[in-house]
């Protein structure tokens, strides 16, 4: 009898856990899953605390050539500056596990961000990859936009040309800029999903 109850409990909790995980997966046009992460300065950031503002999530690995493409060219910093000036919260998230590429010491992160003159709101550390998995983040960069009501309104690539070549940036259509531009001017986002490109997230 006891073993029967034990088996039942395992099945029940397994089912409940699967359901919980499924509920916590980001989906377009659905409430963005909430999370709390600590930034490189030790400050905690909870997504739901930014309710009422647009939030951009940018998955990062400073050593990835696709990330370098957008930082060496100043493209990412210009986007960060343009939109944070308009009140957008720009959260950079690093899901690289300890020992993996992109998991840098805090001083090194600060140095890189300073050298790049990065204009993000915060650099969040997600070493266990929990938030990365919650958002199905696959590449660096991988971009998401959440509206003031907390709904995920964009997920995908930064732009339309899948390369590591800086000279492609001006020729590409910037999906993040397009989506934010539309959303901030009260229009609905015309391209809500694109296929991200970049290095794999180093879980």
């Amino acid at each position: 009898m006891n073993s029967f109850l034990g088996l039942f409990a395992i099945i029940f909790f397994g089912f409940a856990l699967t359901n919980l995980i499924a509920q916590n997966k980001a989906e377009i046009d659905k409430p963005a899953p909430d999370f709390e992460l600590t930034d490189v300065n030790g400050t905690k950031h909870k997504l739901s605390d930014s309710r009422g503002k647009y939030v951009v999530l940018e998955w990062i690995n400073f050593d990835c050539p696709f990330v370098k493409k957008h930082y060496d060219s100043d493209n990412m910093q210009k986007l960060q500056e343009k939109y944070t000036k308009q009140g957008v919260i720009w959260l950079v998230i690093c899901s690289s596990a300890p020992g993996k590429e992109g998991n840098l010491p805090k001083d090194e992160i600060k140095k890189r961000a300073e050298n790049y003159k990065a204009k993000f709101t915060a650099y969040l550390i997600d070493e266990r990859g929990d938030v990365g998995h919650m958002y199905s983040a696959k590449t660096t960069p991988h971009m998401y936009i959440i509206d003031p009501q907390g709904t995920l309104i964009y997920a995908g690539a930064i732009d339309s040309i899948r390369s590591t070549d800086k000279s492609d940036i001006d020729k590409a259509e910037n999906y993040v800029s397009k989506a934010l531009g539309e959303a901030l001017s009260g229009k609905s986002v015309s391209t809500k999903v694109t296929q991200p490109y970049g290095c794999s997230v180093k879980y």
């Binding site: 990835c64 050539p65 696709f66 993996k100 590591t164």
Partner: peptide, 12 residues
């Protein structure tokens, strides 16, 4: 020919 090669890191 352009490619991306990856090991622990990626290089174009």
């Amino acid at each position: 020919v352009k490619w991306l090669a990856c090991k622990e890191k990626c290089l174009p």
